[in-house]
Amino acid sequence: MLKVVHYINQFFANIGGEEMAHVPAEVREGIVGPGLAFQQAFGEEAEIVATIICGDSYFNENLEEAKQTIINMVKKYSPDLFIAGPAFNAGRYGVACGTIAMAVRDELNIPVLSGMYRENPGADMFKNSIYVVSTKNSAAGMRDAVKKMAPLALKLAKGEKVGASAEEGYMPNGKRVNFFEKERGSRRAVNMLIKKLNGKEFETEFPMPDFDRVDPNPAVKDITKAKIALVTSGGIVPKGNPDHIESSSASKYGKYDIDGIMDLTEADFATAHGGYDPVYANLDPDRVLPVDVLREFEKEGKIGSIHRYFYTTVGNGTAVKNSKAFAEEFAKELLADGVDAVILTST
C-alpha cells in the first residue's frame, strides 16, 4: 500500500484560529482533520501514515527552521507522496503548503501535491513548481477538492503519466500538454463566442502571458518636499469600524482623516482584518500603519507632509478584482490631491 504524509495548519487540526497561528510544527501518527476524506477516497490503495501540523504564522516567520523540522518529520516515514492542504483561500496557509511541498520534493525527491483557490497568493507562487489543484475558496469546498486531489495524488504516487491540466484538475503550470477535447476546435470556438457575446463566463484555452506589469514610476526627486500618503491592506480603521469593512473578502475600502493625529492609539483605532492575529495591531495600530514615526519625520523635515487621509481595506481573501477597483478609484483622488508618493503596508 502506498504511504502518504499529510500537512495541515492549526485551523484544520482543530487547534484554533488566528490566535493559535503561532504553534510550531508537530507530527501525529495517522489521520487528522481533512485527512479522513482523503483516506476514504484512497480506499485500499494508499494510507495516510502521518499528519504534520504547523501554525501558519509560525511557518512563515520561522521559515528555514520550520522547513527543516518538517522535512525531517516527513523523512522518517519515507512516504510515496506528500500532500499539503488544501488551503482554499487562506493566503499564508497556501504559501506554507507550497513552500513545504516544494522543499519536500526537492530534498526528499518524492512527489508532492497541494490544493488552493486560484486567487490564493500561494497559487501564483507555486503552481509552476508543483502540482496545485484548483479548489473552491473556502473549506466548504473540501469534498470537491478531495474528489479532484485524490485521483491525481494516486497517479503521482504511482509515477503514472499526468495528463493536461484541464483533465487532471491542477492549475495550468506553464507546461502545455496536448489532449483530445470532446468537441472539435471550431465548435469550441463557436460556443466560446456565444458565451462571450452573451456576457457569460468563458474559459480561454490559452491565457495570454501575463503582461500586467506596470513600469516603475520615476523616483521622488526631493523626498523632503514630498506629500506622502499612507495606504494599507492591513485593515486599520477608526475604532468601531464605522464603514463596516468586512474582515474578509472586503467589498469596500475606507478613507479616514488623520489631520492632527500624531499617533494611532488603542483608544481610537483598531484592525478590521480577519486574517491575522489582531492583538498586536489593536494594542498599537502604528505597527501596521506607522503614523507616529512618519509624523516625526514630517516635523524633522525628512518628508514634506503626510497626506490628510489614509486609505485602508482588508486584504484577507479579497478578490483581486475588488482591490484593483478600490485602488483605481482612490488613486485618482490621490493624484487630484497632489500626493507625490505612497507608502503601502500589508500584513
Binding site: D212, K324, I343, S346
Partner: peptide, 27 residues
Amino acid sequence: MVKEIERAGIPVVHMCTVVPISLTVGA
C-alpha cells in the same frame, strides 16, 4: 492595489512581510 497606484503615476513603496507575494502581485 499597489499596481493600480503605480499605474496612476504615483511612485509607491510596498512594505510587507511575505516578499514573494509582493513580487507576484507586481510591486
